[in-house]
Amino acid sequence: MKKLVGTILTATLLLAGCGQQSDEDTSVSAIKPIDINMSLVFTQNELLTQELIQVSDKIRQRTDGSVNIKVFPGGQLPVYKDNLEQVVNGANWIAVEDLSYLGDYVPDFAALAGPMLYNSYDEYLAMMQTDFVADLKQQVEQKGIKVLNADYMFGFRHMITNKEIKNAADMKGMRIRVPGSQLFISTLDSMGASPAALPFPETYAGVQQGVVDGLEGSILTMYSTKIYEVAKNMSLTKHFLGTVGIYISPTLWDKLTAEQQQIVTEELEAGAISNTAELVKLDAEYTQKLEDLGVTFNNVDTAEFSKLTADVYNQFPTWSKDIHRTINMELEKIRAVK
């Protein structure tokens, strides 16, 4: 009898153990790994790329590999408009692009990348926290694009030439290389230059041979591309601030658990803070390096250029009529609390 009771008890314990193991297996398999491609045009060695690689590594570690973001820099995958289309189509995809590309879906978003708006990195970061931008994010999410983060920057753009530029008169007739973007073309034209849409790989030779008189770009660009060998002056116009947003499909986002979403959000925020701190450091470091290489820096008549570029905001019919005034009102509020 004792043997029979012992046998029944042992069997019961074994069955209970098997049932418990089954429950654990179900719990583990409930979170299926998600592979997500992140596409960006920035090259492997650029600051922004390196920061996003670190972010993706930390997300992978903290989610035990269940959120596996693979970073594809240098345009290995579709970029620009095609990048955003992957997101809108609901692919397992994260697009890293300039805010202006959101303008194809919510036009006023492009105006946030317009000329002569921000005086500092902090002003841009504060703008991204306003109710005005929150409303634009809500609108674009309804179009199939969730803005995970818009705090990543890669520097102010300035005039890089062999001539000191202080005002519009100094730029008159100068052929300045710009990307093939209407916003860039309109801006440089309003500043007094003759914009020339030249492929970037041809720019060094273009300046060297006198095809163009210079280009516009950041301090980091001037150093990393060795443009300083053919252009020895940087006029600090700050006519554009280089920024990008991190975008995902709302459908894909909803496939992540609440915990996974929190981890992704936290790591992207931490990466943006790290990127800004490093950007400030590199701006100072590369300014010194360029000065040591014979580059001269000079300030410009910012007020004049701001006045001249104001009409650019009227050249895009899809933008709200008073968008320039609206953005400047937000910036005035930001500046008032400094």
Rank of each mutant, 00 (worst) to 15 (best):
G90M: 06
I145L: 08
N167E: 06
V212D: 06
Y286K: 07
L84M: 13
K281M: 14
G155C: 06
L148G: 12
E304T: 09
Q76R: 10
A110T: 03
I248W: 00
K172V: 06
Q208K: 15
S306A: 12
R62V: 01
K333Y: 08
Y247Q: 05
L117H: 00
L40T: 04
V5Y: 11
L308G: 03
L236T: 12
T287M: 11
Y105L: 10
T309H: 02
E24C: 10
D122A: 12
H239V: 06
N314T: 14
I145E: 02
N298P: 09
A196L: 13
L84T: 05
I160G: 00
L198N: 07
I165D: 03
F305L: 13
I34Y: 00
S235C: 07
I185A: 12
D64Y: 11
V133P: 10
Q139N: 09
L268C: 00
F240R: 01
Y228S: 09
I227D: 03
S100P: 02
N83Q: 05
D104P: 05
Q262K: 15
V230D: 04
M38D: 00
D301T: 02
D292S: 12
G19L: 13
L102C: 10
A303G: 07
V140Y: 08
V312S: 06
S27H: 11
K32D: 13
